[in-house]
Design a binder for these strands. Structure first.
Length: 603
DNA sequence: GTAGGGTTAG
């Protein structure tokens, strides 16, 4: 029997089914549900749908991540789309379709257009996106939407994504009465003192109320520029506003206190959280790591894994102890193993941290493996590997990698250049060094900026009220031991000094002559101290020799640059004791073996 | 039937 003929639906029919239809669409939780609704509409002669139903169907498809082709086909099924439907498609597609703006774009159109352009830019759009952004901005201004806070915040965000802070500020300045969201956009986009100043302006202005997003946006900037006192001020401000319990604000505060070195306060806030999420865990893990508490950081990592939270790249970058003064061979292997197994190898920041870690442990083969495994190397990746080679005395490898970088048309930055220059100097590769200087002069790598940087560093140093005291760290059976110059605080102090005395006699026999004070030049604070004081490196090495079996490698870490006399003495110590001694000082690694140092006496 | 802003790593 043929199916009964249906009469076409009247306007009254359409209105009657719209409400349950919209409800049905809103309740659908899978693409399959939506497909079924669509199929029923077609079969029952209700297609094409009215624009309102079509809009909700399209947005629901988009929110369930339907393929973009599907969204486009759906859209094209409506011969006369209204502005709602056009706006819905503009919002749902991942890159800007300027044609959808016309005719008669409204404030929704501009806000959606800016948002989709920003999304495509953050996925790696280049210079073309910048001109598209300016064109969109000009259209919005011409259409009279420059003062609309919704349009302005979307446009400002777009410019921030494109790193055009100047344009973003202009967008903000065009709005006579910015609302909280627009202020928040500005605060989130600016960094450091600029953000802090704008925050002060916002609060001082008094016309808008800061909310949790305001604080969450400004806290990273406060942490960047401020000391712990200002951090506490912002914290009490948050408390006064009743915003200090908000999860994101708490996370920002945890990060702030961690960066100021107050890990205890950070932990307190973390413990206040009802159910800390991954971001909160990451903030505290990072806090522990940068403050040298690698054990606590690993414990917290274990805790989050036990809770079934899966780490992301930030977790691993925070966890990998590239700042720790100690070597962590076993931890390095574990973490590298985890990165390999969990598929983070392709993540550049993670693999760069792994590269740096291996370089610091002088395991250049593993470092190179991690480096080579990165499908997309960032500037940081190149710099990590090049400076790793340079610091470990593999100067030719450093220069070769630098050349490879240039061949691949990757532009070096000042850090790359200075690492390579230091390698050239060690190699005595004068012509290559000169060539590099020419590159510096030819490319918006002004040689001045290097000398300026040096002046700034010097300035900062001389202004410091308390100079960093020199110390040396040595780890024996997983326990750290710290020595200062002339230190007698160590429980085995007596044994260390008497051993050092005997050792010095042997060294003198082998030809060692202690340097006199006059021979020292350009030295760090500790070296200026009176020569009768025994430098911390010598104490740490003597302790290491005493505490380990013959033949064991000695590995020490000095926070300042190793002095001329200690460098010379260590050469003799390696010879008379037949030990490999690895010293990491403030600028590089030194491998002392049989009276010779890998740095070739250049450091 | 449609909007804009956020916390963590380097």
């Amino acid at each position: 029997m043929p199916p009964p003929r249906r009469r076409p639906p009247s306007a009254a029919d359409a209105a009657a089914i719209r409400r349950p239809y919209l409800r049905l669409v809103a309740l659908s939780s899978t693409l399959r549900h939506l497909d079924q609704i669509l199929a029923v509409s077609l079969a029952s002669g209700h297609y094409p749908l009215d624009p309102a139903s079509a809009t909700s169907l399209l947005l629901r498809y988009a929110s369930l991540r339907a393929p973009h082709g599907h969204l486009l086909r759906l859209f094209r099924g409506f011969p006369r789309p209204d502005r709602f439907l056009r706006n819905a498609l503009l919002r749902s597609l991942p890159s800007l379709r300027p044609r959808l703006l016309f005719p008669c774009p409204d404030s929704f159109s501009f806000a959606f257009a800016a948002t989709s352009l920003a999304a495509s830019c953050s996925r790696g759009g280049g210079a073309a996106s910048s001109s598209a952004a300016r064109a969109l901005h000009a259209l919005a201004v011409a259409a009279g939407y420059a003062a609309d806070t919704f349009v302005a915040s979307a446009l400002a965000k777009l410019y921030f994504v494109l790193s055009r802070v100047d344009h973003a500020r202009k967008v903000f300045d065009m709005v006579p009465s910015p609302d909280t969201v627009l202020w928040n956009t500005l605060l989130a986009g600016l960094s450091g003192s600029e953000a802090v100043e704008s925050f002060a302006r916002m609060v001082g202005d008094g016309s808008v109320r800061p909310d949790a997003t305001t604080l969450a946006s400004v806290l990273p900037a406060v942490a960047e520029v401020a000391d712990v006192t200002m951090g506490r001020c912002v914290h009490s401000f948050a408390e006064k506003c009743g915003l200090a319990d908000h999860e994101h604000v708490l996370t920002g505060l945890i990060s702030l206190y961690s960066k100021c070195g107050d890990v205890e306060s950070a932990r307190c806030l973390f413990d206040m959280m009802e159910k800390p999420d991954l971001v909160a865990y990451n903030a505290l893990i990072s806090g522990y790591s940068v403050n040298g508490m690698v054990g606590s950081s690993v414990d917290l990592f274990t805790e989050l894994m036990t809770l079934g939270l899966w780490p992301n790249s930030s977790t691993l970058v925070a966890l990998i102890p590239v700042h720790s003064p100690f070597g962590h061979d076993l931890l390095a292997q574990c973490l590298h193993g985890f990165v390999l197994k969990s598929g983070f190898t392709a993540n550049s920041p993670v693999s760069t941290a792994i590269t740096t870690l291996h370089c610091r442990l002088n395991d250049m083969e593993s470092a190179r493996k991690a480096f080579d495994a990165m499908p997309e190397k960032t500037m940081e990746s190149w710099n990590a590997m090049i400076s790793g080679y340079a610091q470990n005395g593999l100067t030719e490898m450093a220069v070769a990698l630098f050349e490879q970088m240039l061949k691949l048309n990757v532009r070096p930055n000042p850090i790359t250049i200075s690492s390579t220059l230091s390698a050239c100097a060690q190699l005595g590769a004068l012509s290559l060094g000169k060539w590099l200087h020419r590159i510096i002069a030819e490319e918006d790598l002004e040689p001045n900026q290097y000398s300026e940087a040096a002046v700034v560093r010097q300035e900062a140093k001389s202004r410091k009220l308390v100079k960093t005291p020199g110390y040396t760290l040595i780890e024996i059976s997983n326990k750290p031991h710290v020595f200062m110059a002339g230190d007698r605080a160590h429980p085995q102090s007596e044994a260390i000094y008497s051993y050092l005395e005997k050792l010095t006699a042997k060294m003198i026999e082998a030809g060692y002559r202690p340097e006199t004070e006059a021979a020292l030049y350009d030295v760090e604070e500790e070296e200026k101290e009176h020569m009768v004081k025994v430098h911390s490196e010598k104490l740490a090495i003597a302790f290491g020799l005493l505490s380990t079996e013959p033949g064991t490698e000695i590995r020490i870490i000095k926070n300042l640059r190793v002095c001329l006399d200690c460098h010379n003495a260590t050469k003799f110590i390696s010879k008379v004791t037949q030990r490999l001694i690895v010293v990491r000082d403030a600028s590089r690694f030194h491998h002392f073996r049989d009276g010779v140092c890998s740095c070739g006496d250049y450091w």
